[in-house]
Each structure stands twice: as C-alpha cells, then as structure tokens.
Design a protein around this nucleic acid. Structure first.
Length: 259
DNA sequence: ATGACGGTGTGGCACCGA
C-alpha cells in the first residue's frame, strides 16, 4: 500500500492538480495540509467520485488538514487533545488494512517565523504537546504513521544552504531536537530508510526561481512506527507537480508499505 | 537588511507562509 502527504497551499486552487495526481498515483492514503478552506467548502463529492473517503478539519484562510483514504476512516481526532489551539493543524484517524489497523496522524506543524518570536514559542509548545500526545497514541496504536508538513529540516543535508541558514527557522537546534524526540518515541524517518539522491527537497520558495535552482528544504516527512518500518519498501518525493502551472510550493512525499 | 511569489480577505493593500 502507498501513503502520501502533500501540502497543497489552498485546496480550492489545487483541487484539479490533486485529482490529476490521484488519477496517476492511486495511493491508499493522502494526507493534505494548508487547505485554507472551511469544512463546508471541502470538495467532498469530487474526492468521493475519485474513490476516496475523507476526514476533514478545515479553517478559513490559514491551516486546515484532511485525510483521504480508499477505505473508511474511523476514530477521528482533531488537533492535539488537551492542547488548546485556535488553529486547525492536526487530524488523526484509523483505517483497517490486511495487516491490521493503521493509525494515521496528519500534521501541519507550526511555521514559527523566526527564533525568539511569539510564533516560535508557540511552535515549541506545539511540538512538545504533539510529542506527549504521540507517546499515548503509539501505546494504543503500535502501527502508526505520523506525516505532514513538519516545517523542520532535520539535518544539514535537508537544506540547500545549511551554513548560510544555520540557526534560522526550520534549522534551529530546538526544532531539530524536537524532531529527534519524535523519532525517540520509536519512529523512523521513512525517507532516510532508503538511499536517496543528494539535495533532495520537498519545498522550494516561489520566489527567486527557487525550484529551478533547487534551492529547497526537506520539511515534509513520513515517520513510521517501529512496528511498520520493516514493511517499508520505498519512499520518494514526487517533484513533478512542482513543475505544473500554478503549483503548490510543496511536493508530495510517498511511502510504499509491503503488505 | 530587504524583497522576490502566491493565496486570502473585503482590498485599493496587508498579512502570512517558509
């Protein structure tokens, strides 16, 4: 089975591209971030016609996340339980697979703007709350996938300019420590389970020909719990949609699980 | 140090993203 994540930067604008991509890549699960629309504007009929069930947590203008799956989604949770949050950033759900129940946690992690800002403090609090909640989720759901736009470049090799951007947002030691503490719960970065091309990124700035110059960051991730990591057979970033007219600034990441 | 690009909102631009 295949599981993918894609920050679409407005589902209203990107829906045709999402439908095209799903037609070409009929993944079992697609986690979407930055819907930028409310639940009543969610294009449920079009996605159902494409063969997907959906669980949605929308918001006007900013944020908004959804899970699409070929099988029904149950036990849906919106945002981090116990963490008071005005912003729609997390949706979790369970699907049943031949190998057993699979828990999916889709996150649009806080950007954080700049170290020292209020938004950065919110990012660190959010990351800590996610970590604490995931400990209990993993205990209840050993077969768990945490995926989405993490807004963290975990290592220097995940940035086009690790020296020039050292200490800036996405690159700070605090953010990277939080990423490592998620792994320490018993999860693996699926992309790094496999040999990958150098300078692999999942996001490129719209400005300054970022994509054409491959000035990007790898900030969209799929983490597999220890019970799942042995089942992974591939993980790739699909750069093709970034070449579309009116692209999202992010590319989809896809993991293949043998089962 | 700044802005560049793109999306949204009720706009004549500002704000935000990463």
């Amino acid at each position: 089975m295949q599981i993918a994540t894609w920050n679409v930067n407005s589902l209203t604008v990107r829906l045709p591209q999402v439908l095209d991509w799903l037609a070409a890549h009929p993944v079992d699960v697609l986690a979407l971030q930055e819907l930028k629309l409310t639940d009543d504007k969610f294009p449920l009929a079009a996605l159902q016609a494409a063969g997907y069930h959906a669980a949605v947590f929308g918001q006007k203008t900013y944020n908004g996340v959804a899970l699409l799956a070929r099988s029904p989604l149950r036990d849906v949770v919106r945002n981090i339980p116990g963490f008071d949050d005005e912003q729609a950033r997390v949706i979790a759900a369970t699907i049943d697979t031949p190998g057993g129940a699979l828990r999916l946690v889709n996150g649009y992690f806080v950007n954080g703007q700049a170290p020292g800002s209020d938004k950065f403090a919110y990012k660190l609090r959010w990351l800590a709350a996610l970590h604490d909640w995931l400990r209990t989720e993993l205990a209840q759901h050993p077969r768990l996938v945490l995926l989405g736009d993490f807004n963290v470049a975990p290592e220097d090799r995940d940035s086009y300019d690790p020296e020039g951007l050292r200490g800036t947002i996405h690159h700070t030691p605090e953010e990277r420590a939080h990423f490592q503490s998620l792994l320490a719960l018993g999860m693996a970065d699926a992309y790094r389970l496999f040999e990958q091309p150098e300078k692999s990124y999942s996001w490129w700035d719209y400005r300054m020909l970022g994509f054409q110059k491959n000035r990007g960051l790898r900030i969209d991730h799929i983490l597999l719990s220890d019970a799942l990591r042995g089942h992974a057979s591939a993980c790739t970033i699909d750069r093709a949609p970034r070449k579309n007219p009116q692209p999202s600034d992010h590319a989809p990441v896809v993991v293949t699980l043998a089962e």
